[in-house]
């Protein structure tokens, strides 16, 4: 199942284990100037608020209602990254792993291939959490990972328009696959609450319609799947469409003040 809790999405499979939970949140950040050195993106600007499309259906486009899901506010020119956090409440030494696919405009963020809901061997088109704790950006056409930057759909600048020649979807797409329970059991044999397990090592606390275009390079990697594609439970996949609302329309839609715009050198599209 997939629920919205505060400012995070929770992919949850209590039928597998009570802690088979992946928390996903969106963190906005400024777009780095193109000529600045590649660097890690920080989280100082906070998580974005997330709302159900169904709660504001009468104020949203028909295409959003049809897709369902959730929406977030973002100003054109602002960037975001996707945070992934397994459930490690109570010091669980063996958090339940998930494979996560992410797309924008139904283009896979990590391969630029068309969106699919299977996991690809070879050119890995998904991230595995843990150990991966974020999806920092979008693969560039030069095959370097780049910041993803909000830009108006139909502007001609979104990755979707550049690659597919049309602006049909926009937004962000996510799909999460829990590990097969049998694989998890053998992986976590011998661990017990309070101890430390193999896959928890290296876990660190970290802590109208837009699409995404490429920004400057980011210094980050997508870690290879340590378990292999056959480890994931395809039957239990959950997915969500995250619509990107221009933050200037947020108050008119939700009645709430949007987060203030970030001061950054790269804002554009206004």
């Amino acid at each position: 199942m997939l629920e919205l809790s505060g400012q995070e999405l929770r992919f949850y499979h209590p039928d597998l284990e009570p802690w088979a939970l992946l928390r996903v949140f969106l963190v906005r950040t400024v777009q780095r100037p193109e000529n600045s050195p590649a660097r890690l993106l920080t989280s100082e600007n906070g998580r974005l608020p997330i709302r159900h499309v169904d709660d504001f259906a009468e104020k949203l486009p028909e295409s959003w209602r049809e897709r369902g899901g959730v929406f977030v506010p973002l100003y054109p020119g602002e960037s975001l990254w996707i945070g992934l956090m397994p459930d490690s409440d109570g010091g669980n030494p063996c958090p339940y792993p998930f494979a996560v696919k992410a797309g924008t405009g139904k283009v896979n963020m990590l391969t630029l291939a068309l969106w699919t809901e299977t996991l690809q061997e070879g050119d890995q088109d998904y991230a595995v959490c843990p150990p991966q704790h974020w999806i920092p950006g979008l693969l560039g056409q030069d095959r370097t990972l780049r910041q993803m930057v909000a830009t108006p759909l139909h502007s001609g600048r979104t990755a979707e328009e550049a690659l597919l020649g049309a602006a049909r979807h926009g937004g962000i797409q996510l799909a999460a696959f829990p590990m097969k329970h049998s694989v998890y059991r053998s992986l976590c044999q011998g661990t017990s609450p309070g101890g430390r397990g193999r896959i928890s090592e290296g876990l660190a606390a970290f802590g109208p319609d837009l699409g995404m275009e490429w920004g400057p390079p980011v210094q980050a990697d997508i870690l290879p799947d340590p378990h292999g594609p056959s480890s994931w439970d395809m039957e239990r996949m959950n997915r969500v469409f995250i619509h990107l609302a221009d933050a200037r329309t947020w108050k008119g839609i939700t009645g709430e003040d949007p987060p203030g715009p970030l001061a950054g050198p790269g804002r554009k599209g206004e």
Binding site: M1, E3, R239, F241
Partner: peptide, 10 residues
Amino acid sequence: IIREVRDGKW
């Protein structure tokens, strides 16, 4: 009791 995020057609 939780409210699931509705997935539509896309």
